[in-house]
Design a protein around this nucleic acid. Sequence first.
DNA 1: TCAAAAGTGTTATCCTTACACCCATGT
DNA 2: ACATGGGTGTAAGGATAACACTTTTGA
Lengths: 320, 320
Amino acid sequence: MSHDQRTPIEVNLTAAIVAIVEDEPMILVADDATGRMAALPSGPFDPVAHRTFEIGLREWVREQTGAPLGYVEQLYTFGDRGRNAQAGDRDPHVVSVGYLALTRVASESDERAPYRGWYAFLPWEDWRVRKPPIIEEKILPALETWAARDPDRPNAYGLSRTERVRMLFSDDKNFSDENALDRYQLLYEAGLVEEARRDGRASPLIDEAGPLGEPMRHDHRRILATAIGRLRAKMKYRPVIFELMPPAFTLTALQRTAEAISGRTLHKQNFRRFVETAAVVEPTGEFTHHTGGRPAALFRFRREVLQERPAAGLRVGVRG
Amino acid sequence: MSHDQRTPIEVNLTAAIVAIVEDEPMILVADDATGRMAALPSGPFDPVAHRTFEIGLREWVREQTGAPLGYVEQLYTFGDRGRNAQAGDRDPHVVSVGYLALTRVASESDERAPYRGWYAFLPWEDWRVRKPPIIEEKILPALETWAARDPDRPNAYGLSRTERVRMLFSDDKNFSDENALDRYQLLYEAGLVEEARRDGRASPLIDEAGPLGEPMRHDHRRILATAIGRLRAKMKYRPVIFELMPPAFTLTALQRTAEAISGRTLHKQNFRRFVETAAVVEPTGEFTHHTGGRPAALFRFRREVLQERPAAGLRVGVRG
DNA sequence: TCAAAAGTGTTATCCTTACACCCATGT
DNA sequence: ACATGGGTGTAAGGATAACACTTTTGA
């Protein structure tokens, strides 16, 4: 109702810019002037210069990194006071709008842009080769200590600490790839990530256990976790994965990309059958011999599915 | 990277506050001082007074409307220049963060809060009694004229006007309840909603066809469409619908609520079987006789499902 | 010739959809 | 008694998950 009272606030845009390099999910990290910690590329939103967020985002990303963005999606807007707090910084009144962007990197070698594998920051999210040992070795012991201090305290949804720990980390069978943000937030709330120090929430356990993944500046790791969860979810009902693939690819490469994003291995035949019956790709007729074995047929995305079945995603239900 | 350049911007919070009254989905509309047009409740975000968006939102909603909010979810942040443009208003630099909130209204009568049925604003979204006649009578003729002016022009996703019209409005079989925002945006882009006038996008067709649904101030109808689409989607994989139900309810009332939100009728037996096998509710043992027929068993939400299967939604796949 | 990866065939099971009928109450 | 809504049983068909084997190449 009232538009009279104006509180001046700075709005900035922060992007998790994702690419796949050699079957690894990577994000573009900014050159941090201080060099201390990785950060996502981020810049102020200037409403005078840019008509919309997305235009602004595309512009400074191109300027600063040279990366042309393909698919872009808004994630979440973070307005917490203190989220940008640094030593000596009081209440900066910054609202930041997080974005997910997908891009293609021509090849790993001709690209000295600072891409980093995203699992360096969230190692407990990568279940491809095995259940990440960090979970049993560090995370669960620390979380259990934390939960035991107040096991029944319910959060906003009426779930106790014990229940949340079990749901998010101990129940391997129901470990859900899309809950990356919930897992990060639980670790944050328990004071087990470096970022919690700035907030005065750091647990003594953090020093015993050692760091859980590499921290990032500000709350960028939270934005990354949001991006990962969103991309994992979206991939299942929209053909966004092709924004990360070259124009022609093998089915195995497609599967490896799906696995890289979801952090789990998939069942080969079922993955292929799904892709085939969903008619989401078509053979180009070409073959590649760079396989180390039998040559593989190349496929391309069938753009027609965008009109036929806009909800065509990639089945990621089945472990390999 | 650079946090030096600060552009002062006003941030406001706008909420679609949803309740179900007599099987109708309603939203709280603000008392508009001008009285000309409905608006969503909205207020400035003051980072000095409120630590987070959600705290700020809950506070002024309670102050202004007396409604205590239950479930709250951020929808989207709109930063378009001109989105708040009114006659005489130049470039107000307002960023607005849209929220969805779910609440329970004790009963229709003891509540003089201005709730309005949401389908008054988006009548083409209500397929419960029949396919909304407005689609064939007004929307499709106007959209087809619009598409014919430039049938092949592709949008950002490579889809032509013709294709988008077909996907969103003419293909009844694949009409997807979750795409409420896409449908509204298409009408906006085609200049067929009142709100497009402010932007200079109004089509001459708008005067021939007459208004398509009741307009709202600013871009509140876009926020409402976002809220509806998100709630329809979320309902399918999270038990959020119970935030709208009283503590005890009949299965028919639950089904009517699901239908009200999704805008379609559901298949009775399959709905019930699903609710039962998902074990998402349990009988209270009580019965209500206010049915007009055989008394109905009362059920309550099983809060345990939050830990057992956090992804327990309500199947809304089957037409009645 | 053998390692390495590509590529297929088949079955048991479960889930989804669709069908139409019986039940208990208030009026 | 009858109108009104509550409440079931069941079967066909399709999707899913699980199983292990054959094929084609480069080295």
